[in-house]
């Protein structure tokens, strides 16, 4: 089912790529720290012709060009954010695998938090409704610690 995975069907428009892997030895920068930055940036950028891969994973020629570009910008002294801005200026927000936080993505970024909070609220209301009131109710004597321990043990064995 994970079918034609990463075969880059969309690359039909681009020339049929010769089989290759992502980062090639000749792309790697000499400075390991800078190379590590390049790798991290590459993971944030979408390979446009393969749709759901980052340029770091992709073997499409355009992905390679973009990887080289990222490294050129880093060597030229750009910061990580500047490199991302440079690519975004040409390809739009679409290339960013981490969508920027702005009006059109508020729902995306805040959605999970909203779901969690609403769910927690719902669960809290539900749990309040489920709370047994008889045990601590009027007229009932609170359990002594020994009794409670015994009860807990019994309940535990019951489960």
């Amino acid at each position: 089912m994970t079918g034609v995975v990463r075969a880059c069907l969309a690359a039909l428009l681009i020339a049929v790529a010769s089989p290759a892997f992502a980062v090639q030895p000749d792309e790697v920068l000499r400075d390991p720290a800078m190379e590590a930055r390049a790798r991290e940036i590459s993971k944030e950028l979408r390979c446009l012709v393969c749709q759901n891969q980052s340029i770091d994973d992709s073997n499409a020629p355009l992905a390679r060009d973009l990887r080289v570009l990222v490294r050129q910008r880093l060597v030229a002294g750009d910061g990580d954010g500047e490199v991302l801005d440079y690519v975004t200026a040409r390809y739009g927000d679409y290339v960013l695998l981490r969508p920027p936080f702005k009006a059109s993505t508020y729902v995306l970024w805040l959605g999970p938090i909203a779901v969690l909070l609403l769910g927690a609220l719902g669960a809290a209301l539900f749990l309040r409704g489920r709370r047994p009131t008889v045990v601590g109710g009027e007229g009932a004597t609170p359990l002594t610690p020994e009794e409670r321990q015994r009860l807990d043990r019994l309940l535990r064995e019951d489960s």
Binding site: E44, P99, P112
Partner: peptide, 29 residues
């Protein structure tokens, strides 16, 4: 909540496109 999060992330590009609010990619980050 985790299911909803994955759902939202997976389908958000579709939602945005359907209301003509632009194209966005939602990836591993």
């Amino acid at each position: 909540t985790a299911t909803a999060t994955v759902f939202l992330g997976t389908l958000y590009p579709l939602f945005l496109d359907a209301i003509d609010a632009g194209k966005v990619s939602v990836g591993p980050p």
